[in-house]
């Protein structure tokens, strides 16, 4: 479904993504791991168009999407959440998700029909599935950090994606919230059959859900394989598991 071939991205001489490759098949849950600064977020930004790769191909359903603007990539079926909470602060929780749903339904140029009456059931369904329905009327900027992270994911679901990309979905969450997010991801992949690509520092979470794991270091792909392969890989062990890297604690 998604294939990245030899992607490069550098900033002012600093190479953030260095010939990385990755493949995600339909229905899979794939994790990208690696230390801080390995280039995971940059890689995601390349996929969803926030950044344009210097070189390399990004194929989504066999079509090269490298260099397309984010909105076009989103319309092709890739949605994402952001590592740092990136929501519509002054709008209510309901409106946050509704914007994505309206965008998906191509109604954003509708000028005179009250938005209040549109896309209600879709939006409510999504809020229901992520457990935010009780807070639908709250101004999103006033939510707790954990709720905002969940809202992040809910907005991404509004576009009815085929591929969902989550950038550290549990960053800054309490253990309970992390457990909830994990169950949510399992539900999305299991019940809805969503393809999920995510990066995460919580190894327990990664190994409990990911079918495939890609390890990044200094912008390059070390290995991509199933969890056992990754665990037993010499290079990965040398680089991380043997060391005291904080992300493997």
């Amino acid at each position: 479904m998604l294939r990245i071939e030899a992607a490069y991205k550098s900033f002012d001489g600093f190479i953030a993504v260095n010939g990385s490759h990755l493949s995600v098949e339909k229905g899979e849950v794939v994790a990208v791991i690696g230390p801080n600064g390995a280039g995971k977020t940059t890689l995601f930004n390349l996929i969803t168009g926030q950044l344009i790769p210097d070189k390399g191909k990004i194929l989504f359903k066999d079509e090269n999407i490298a260099g397309l603007p984010p909105y076009k990539i989103c319309r092709k079926g890739i949605s994402r959440s952001f590592q740092i909470v990136n929501i519509f602060n002054r709008l209510t929780v309901f409106e946050n998700v509704q914007i994505a749903v309206l965008s998906h339904q191509k109604k954003t140029f509708n000028l005179f029909f009250p938005a209040k009456n549109l896309a209600i059931s879709k939006t409510r369904d999504i809020l229901d599935s992520v457990g935010l329905i009780d807070k639908a009327g709250h101004i999103s900027g006033t939510l707790s950090h954990g709720d905002q992270k969940v809202l992040e994911m809910a907005i991404a679901l509004g576009n009815k994606p085929e591929l969902l990309i989550l950038d550290e979905p549990t960053a800054g969450m309490s253990p309970e919230e992390t457990a909830f997010t994990l169950s949510l991801m399992k539900k999305l992949s299991g019940e809805l059959g969503l393809t999920i690509l995510f990066c995460e520092h919580d190894m327990e979470l990664v190994f409990s859900i990911a079918r495939k794991i890609m390890v990044m270091q200094q912008g390059s792909t070390i290995i991509q394989g199933n969890p056992d392969e990754v665990k037993n890989n010499r290079q990965v062990q040398d680089a991380y598991l043997g060391g005291s890297d904080e992300c493997f604690k």
Binding site: Y71, R75, I99, A100, A156
Partner: peptide
């Protein structure tokens, strides 16, 4: 940025 990421031009 987020608006663009949900498919809005």
């Amino acid at each position: 940025e987020r608006t663009e990421a949900v498919g809005v031009d």
